[in-house]
């Protein structure tokens, strides 16, 4: 997948817009300012992804997954190191108790956090690129990075990777956003972004 600097900048900007929407939704829930920072979008092929992850691929994660279909088909995943997912929920509700397991209700809360973030980002992209997308409800997976990202990954597919950091009241949690694209969707996205950049 070939996206030049300009196209990547544009995509990063669209993601940032969506992330900003999500941050204000989270702030309403937390009753405190939730800051979300997104440094830059990176694009990787299947092979580059495995290399990039390296030993990190075996890290246990809590992942929230949603599927989007339409002009672009994408599996969208938000993931955190397994023990940090719960901390994120506690930051949102102001809880202090450290618990070592993701109980059912926390898992549900994590689904919602993923749902808000992924929908905001995709809505911002769909809106700017003027496309129709359908979305699924979130599912939570407790697994390893490798199986979360590679499980349904088509050979030749690409991944948009975005580091993301949540900050509430001086506590922070780092996670990863990934959008898995099949070959047809890569071409579609390239053209849509090119049109968007030309129009802007």
């Amino acid at each position: 997948m070939k996206l030049d600097e300009l196209a990547l900048d544009a995509l990063t900007e669209l993601f940032n817009l969506g992330v900003g929407q999500a941050a204000s939704a989270f702030s309403q829930i937390a009753g405190d300012t939730v800051q979300l920072t997104v440094p830059r979008v990176r694009i990787m092929t299947h092979g580059e992804l495995s290399h990039y992850l390296g030993e990190g691929g075996t890290t246990a994660v809590s992942a929230v997954r949603q599927r989007y279909s339409g002009a672009i088909n994408s599996e969208a995943v938000l993931m955190f190191p397994a023990e940090r997912g719960l901390q994120l929920v506690q930051m949102m509700v102001g809880g202090e108790l450290p618990l070592d397991q993701l109980a059912e209700m926390e898992q549900e809360a994590l689904s919602e956090i993923g749902n808000i973030l992924l929908n905001s980002v995709m809505a911002s992209v769909a809106d700017a690129l003027q496309i129709q997308l359908d979305g699924s409800l979130p599912t939570v997976e407790l697994s390893h990075v490798d199986s979360v990202l590679n499980g349904q990954h088509e050979a030749g597919g690409a991944v948009l990777m975005i580091d993301i950091q949540f900050e509430v009241a001086a506590r922070e949690v780092k996670g990863l956003l990934a959008f898995l694209l099949d070959v047809a969707s890569q071409d579609a996205l390239e053209q849509l972004i090119a049109r968007f950049v030309a129009g802007a």
């Binding site: 509700v93 549900e108 749902n115 929908n119």
Partner: peptide, 24 residues
């Protein structure tokens, strides 16, 4: 209010949404 906001947003974007017990 959070239900009303989430409903309005969901109708606008067409994306399904949820409100979890722990956060609301």
């Amino acid at each position: 209010a959070s239900f009303a906001r989430r409903l309005a947003l969901s109708q606008k974007t067409g994306f399904p949404a949820m409100l979890s017990h722990s956060l609301h």
